[in-house]
């Protein structure tokens, strides 16, 4: 179900977001919770916030729900010990991928998402810092990524960040970290040269490592 919205400003809950008041203007709310509350509770919360919400669990298993601004479920990622689905959803004209703690050290999943055209990845695992897996996936795929659990951070290609670190910690106000996604900078980066253009798929197909 496409959601009619833009995706420029995202608010990430730094605490138990379900108990927070509405953040400043934002197009999407993202919450990380230990376990998913019942859907009616989520629907009421979303309707109260009057904007789309993505709620994911922060444990090794991903469960995530995407709700539109009226609280209707637009997509749900199932739980599994080892995520075997690429959880990707279109929001405000952007493709958003979801990753869990079990996706750490599975660069294949991030690459597949990038090649599907994913623009933004939401990470629900608690990554080591600095230079955790989600940061590294961002560098080798040039999407944007938001670390939702723990200390919220925006990851972007080193060339895009003002200090060259590829990581931008988010300031928390009233329990929310609000970030404006730098789409224009990313467009300029990709126009200057996308690292995905340097892939060598012919070699990978000749020597497919997945077959041992």
């Amino acid at each position: 179900m496409p959601l009619e919205m833009s995706l420029s400003v995202v608010a990430v809950a730094a605490a138990d977001g379900l108990r927070l008041d509405a953040p400043p203007a934002s197009d999407l709310l993202v919450l990380s919770v230990p376990s998913l509350p019942p859907l009616p509770e989520l629907a009421i919360f979303t309707a109260r916030m009057n904007r789309p919400v993505i709620v994911g669990t922060s444990g090794p298993e991903t469960r995530a729900v995407v709700l539109d601004r009226w609280g209707r479920v637009a997509a749900a990622a199932p739980s599994s010990a080892r995520d075997d689905r690429l959880v990707v959803h279109r929001l405000g004209g952007r493709l958003v991928g979801l990753m869990s703690g079990s996706d750490r050290h599975v660069p294949e999943k991030a690459r597949a998402m990038a090649l599907m055209g994913v623009d933004l990845v939401l990470g629900f695992g608690r990554d080591p810092k600095p230079y955790g897996p989600l940061w590294a996936y961002t560098q080798q795929n040039q999407f944007l990524a938001l670390e939702v659990s723990g200390e919220p951070a925006l990851y972007l290609a080193c060339e895009m960040s003002t200090d060259g670190s590829g990581a931008q910690p988010l300031e928390i106000r009233g329990g929310w970290a609000v970030v404006e996604l730098p789409w224009e900078r990313r467009t300029r980066l990709l126009e200057a040269g996308s690292v995905l253009r340097d892939l060598n798929p012919e070699a990978y197909l000749i020597q497919p490592w997945w077959d041992g």
Partner: peptide, 15 residues
């Protein structure tokens, strides 16, 4: 990851 997952995720995209 299991080979069948990698085949599903990557093969069509590399192709």
């Amino acid at each position: 990851p299991a080979p069948e997952l990698l085949r599903a995720w990557l093969l069509p995209r590399y192709r």
